[in-house]
Design a binder for these strands. Structure first.
Lengths: 107, 107
DNA sequence: AAAGCGCTTGGCTATTTTGCCAAATAAGCA
DNA sequence: TGCTTATTTGGCAAAATAGCCAAGCGCTTT
């Protein structure tokens, strides 16, 4: 019955935000640079409203940030360390494609 | 409508496994060393069957591994790089408690 | 072999999440 | 001002997840 610490709560929020195929795809794509909602919708193929809600969740978790310019809202990563983060995820247990490539130091 | 890559699928599996307060707590605790299911149940306070199912999810994602010894099943982290992983999570956007401590390089 | 202990699995309900449509809002343009 | 475009919000039904109880299974001990 150990209580959950504020730090762990924040971790869960970030992890939850990224633990969805569409939201991870959006975030991975934003590593290449900012995009507006319409462009992101084309990328994932969902309804715009759905994409907008996914982006809200990512924003809420502090993963992405946005800026309105004219009619468009441009989204970008809230921090550049995201590629390091993905490398860490892959190292927890390397994905099949990378197994044996030496990329994962454990498992 | 971009398809999800096998690598991203694996990432989602890992992230999903950890994106639950109880499962994150279990995993954080296993950083200190292996424990059996009964001990982990005492830690989180849920029903044993619930804990067992959480552990199955973590095992399936490759986060933890287990070994049966006598009557008990002992769980441990599948790889030692997990503390690095947590640091990465915290850096995506530092938790309130660590904000301003210099621990997070971005946001 | 029978009973006890630790864990897992099956099954069920409650809760949460997802994703669509429709409507509302905001900003540029005729 | 009114129209069009880009995005967000509300609301709902479908799907996924969580957590409890009960039953099953494998070891160990007697």
């Amino acid at each position: 019955m150990t209580a959950i610490s504020p730090t762990s709560q924040k971790r869960v929020a970030v992890l939850k935000a990224l633990a969805h195929p569409t939201r991870l795809l959006l975030t991975e794509r934003l590593m290449q640079g900012e995009l507006c909602v319409g462009e992101l919708r084309d990328l994932v193929g969902d309804d715009v409203s759905t994409v907008s809600k996914h982006l809200l969740i990512l924003r809420h978790a502090g993963v992405v940030a946005c800026q309105k310019r004219g009619l468009n809202v441009y989204y970008r990563l809230a921090c550049e360390c995201f590629s390091d983060f993905l490398q860490c995820v892959d190292q927890v247990c390397p994905p099949p494609a990378m197994a044996g490539s030496g990329a994962g130091v454990c498992c």
